[in-house]
Design a protein around this nucleic acid. Structure first.
Lengths: 144, 144
DNA sequence: CCGTATCCTCCGAGATACTG
DNA sequence: CAGTATCTCGGAGGATACGG
């Protein structure tokens, strides 16, 4: 996802700071949150931590699978910033850092879980729709 | 979203269709679906159609807000392909095309709605977490 | 082991112009 | 009006190397 949420807010401000637009401000924030949540790695990390509870850095990376260190750090930092995960540093040698979901993160996990379940429930329908679409889309759609 | 982890699994599947990996194949598909759903424009279009019911191309564009024709076409096509929206072409002049959610799309809308509600419910906590994070993790200084 | 810093690639996505 | 085609560009994100 590209940086678009900020742009929207900036745009909004540019268009006119109408006093009664507090709701819109919140809407923008919510939009921003959606943008964050709608990130692939965020969702996968959420799932990994939901399933395994507490994980160390590399463990988390392996649990997610196919993620670069950069993205792992970056995403997990963002999640920490948003209060979704708690990061615990153990000042020992070798270094050890534990990651786990906060209650807030867990609640998000529950919400996202709904989407996940939807995907698992309806993936067959989607596959079917894709095949139907690929088969022939020149099929006349009746104008009711 | 860049093509990364799924590609590997898809590749894996292409290289060798091992029977016992059907679960992994489905998991990959579900992952793919999540990736699709986790798209900003998809979610916004979903919301727009959920709220307005049936919309024409430009109406949909305006309802979403800040989307280019290209992305609108592209995203809506993908959604049509996945069976989430139905596209109805009226062979009249001037051309007219209607978009609306399929039952499948509506069910996804319901699931995503849960995440939306979560965002609306917890945005204050996230803001607070962000402030706390920005303030510094050393000492919890009261934010007046 | 846990990151941060750097480079580099590549594709998402906007703008524009054109067709049916 | 509804799309397609083409160009361009920013920046997301992978790979790598190094610091603590």
């Amino acid at each position: 996802m590209r940086r678009t949420a900020e742009d929207e807010r900036i745009e909004e401000r540019r268009r006119g700071p109408i006093p009664a637009e507090v709701d819109l401000a919140i809407e923008a924030l919510v939009n921003d949150i959606i943008g964050k949540v709608a990130d692939k790695w965020t969702m996968l990390i959420l799932e990994a931590l939901e399933e395994h509870g507490v994980l160390r850095f590399t463990q988390l990376g392996r649990a997610v699978g196919g993620i670069s260190q950069k993205m792992l750090t970056q995403t997990v930092r963002q999640m920490e910033r948003d209060g979704l995960v708690r990061r615990t540093v153990h000042p020992v040698i070798p270094p050890r850092v534990d990651y786990e979901l906060t209650p807030l993160g867990a609640s998000l996990g529950a919400a996202v879980c709904g989407v996940w379940i939807w995907a698992e429930t309806h993936h067959a329908e989607i596959e079917q729709a894709r095949r139907a679409f690929a088969a022939g889309r020149t099929v006349a759609e009746g104008v009711s």
